[in-house]
C-alpha cells in the first residue's frame, strides 16, 4: 500500500500553512496566479487517481474539465443562470455523466488501446464544441458573468473578489485531497491499487474489476469537472483548447512531474510546471519549445517525478541519521 514519505508530509503541512496565509501579504498578481495553480493542482490530482492508483493512463482527461467550463458558459450566456447553486451541480453532473459514458466504452480496453480511446473520445467532445458556431467555434467565447452566491438579497460569496476566490480554490483543493485520501484508505482504494498491480489476480479473488475502474473514472471525471467549474469562474472564458488533447497531455505531464501515485505530487507538479511556463513565457514567445525539452528531460531523468526525489532524499536522511 502507498505510504507518503515523511519529508513530503512535512513539506505539505508547510505548504498548506504558506498557502493559507499568503493572501495576507502577497500581491494581487500572485494571489490570482496561485489560485490558477491550485485549480490545476486539483485537476491533476483527479487524474492521478486514474494514472497513479488505478493504472488507467487517460489521455482525454481535459474533456471533463473543459466540459464543465462549457456548461458554465452555456448556462450563463444562453440561459442567463448565474447562481452557483445551479452552475456547480450542473458542471459536476455533466462531467460525471460524460465520464460514465466515456469510461464505459474505454475500460473495455487496456494499455495502449485505453490511451488512444480516451484521447479519441475526448476529441469527440472537443469537436462537438469546436463545431458550434454560436458558441464561438475555434475562438471560444467570453462568459458574461461570474457565478453568484445569493441567499435572498444577501451576497454570501463574491467570485469577483480575488482573495475570496483564492480561498475557495484552496478549500476545494484541500477538500479533494482529504476526500481522495479517505477513498484511497478504504477497501475501494486498496482494490484500485491491487488492480493496477495485477488485474488478473484481482479477478480471481472475486473483484469485478471493470466496475471498480468505471467508478474511479467517474470520481476522477467529476473532480476534473470541479476544477473546470473553478476555471470558468476564474477565467470567464471558454475555448475548445480547454477540452483539447494538448490540455490532457499537459495535465498528465503535471502528474508525472510531481510524481504519480502520491496525492501531493500533482500539487507540487502544478506549482513547478505553471511557474516554469510563466517564467519561460516572459523570456521568449517560443517558450513551448523549452517546455518540450523539459518534458523529455523529466521522462528520461525523473520518471518518478519530484515525489521520487523526495523519497530518495528522505531515505538518505534516515540512513544518515541511523549512522550518526
Amino acid at each position: 500500500m502507498p505510504h507518503h514519505p515523511r519529508i513530503a508530509l512535512a513539506l505539505l503541512a508547510l505548504g498548506a500553512v504558506f498557502l493559507a496565509v499568503f493572501p495576507l501579504w502577497g500581491d494581487t498578481f500572485y494571489i490570482r496566479f496561485i489560485a490558477r495553480i491550485m485549480i490545476f493542482a486539483l485537476f491533476a490530482m483527479s487524474l492521478d487517481l486514474l494514472v497513479g492508483y488505478a493504472g488507467l493512463v487517460s489521455l482525454g482527461h481535459a474533456a471533463f474539465f473543459g466540459l464543465a467550463v462549457y456548461v458554465v458558459a452555456g448556462l450563463v450566456n444562453k440561459a442567463g443562470v448565474t447562481s452557483a447553486f445551479v452552475l456547480l451541480p450542473a458542471a459536476l453532473g455533466a462531467a460525471a455523466i460524460a465520464a460514465a459514458a466515456i469510461g464505459w466504452i474505454s475500460i473495455r480496453t487496456t494499455g495502449v488501446y485505453f490511451i488512444m480511446i480516451t484521447l479519441a473520445l475526448a476529441q469527440m467532445v472537443y469537436y462537438f464544441f469546436h463545431d458550434q458556431k454560436e458558441w464561438g467555434g475555434t475562438d471560444g467565447m467570453n462568459i458574461d458573468s461570474k457565478p453568484t452566491v445569493m441567499l435572498g438579497d444577501l451576497k454570501l460569496f463574491d467570485f469577483y473578489d480575488r482573495v475570496q476566490f483564492y480561498y475557495l480554490a484552496l478549500g476545494c483543493l484541500v477538500a479533494a485531497f482529504v476526500l481522495l485520501t479517505v477513498i484511497l484508505r478504504s477497501p475501494f482504494g486498496h482494490t484500485l491499487v491491487g488492480i493496477r498491480a495485477n488485474e488478473g489476480r484481482m479477478r480471481a479473488l472475486g473483484y469485478d474489476v471493470q466496475r471498480y475502474k468505471l467508478i474511479a473514472f467517474v470520481i476522477a471525471g467529476t473532480l476534473a469537472g470541479l476544477a473546470g467549474f473553478l476555471e470558468a469562474a476564474r477565467a470567464t472564458f471558454a475555448t475548445p483548447a480547454h477540452l483539447g488533447w494538448h490540455e490532457s497531455g499537459h495535465v498528465l505531464m503535471i502528474v508525472i512531474l510531481g510524481g504519480m501515485g502520491t496525492l501531493f505530487g500533482p500539487i507540487l507538479g502544478a506549482f513547478v510546471m505553471l511557474l516554469m511556463e510563466d517564467y519561460f513565457a516572459t523570456l521568449t514567445e517560443r517558450w513551448l519549445l523549452i517546455m518540450g525539452v523539459f518534458v523529455i528531460l523529466v521522462v528520461m531523468l525523473l520518471p518518478d517525478g519530484i515525489a521520487g526525489v523526495l523519497r530518495r532524499v528522505g531515505r538518505l536522511g534516515r540512513r544518515g541519521a541511523g549512522d550518526g
Partner: peptide, 16 residues
C-alpha cells in the same frame, strides 16, 4: 519503458 512515458516523451517531441 511504459506506454505512459512513451506518450509523454513523444508529446514533448510534438511541442518541439
Amino acid at each position: 519503458r511504459d506506454h505512459l512515458y512513451q506518450v509523454l516523451f513523444t508529446y514533448g517531441l510534438i511541442l518541439i
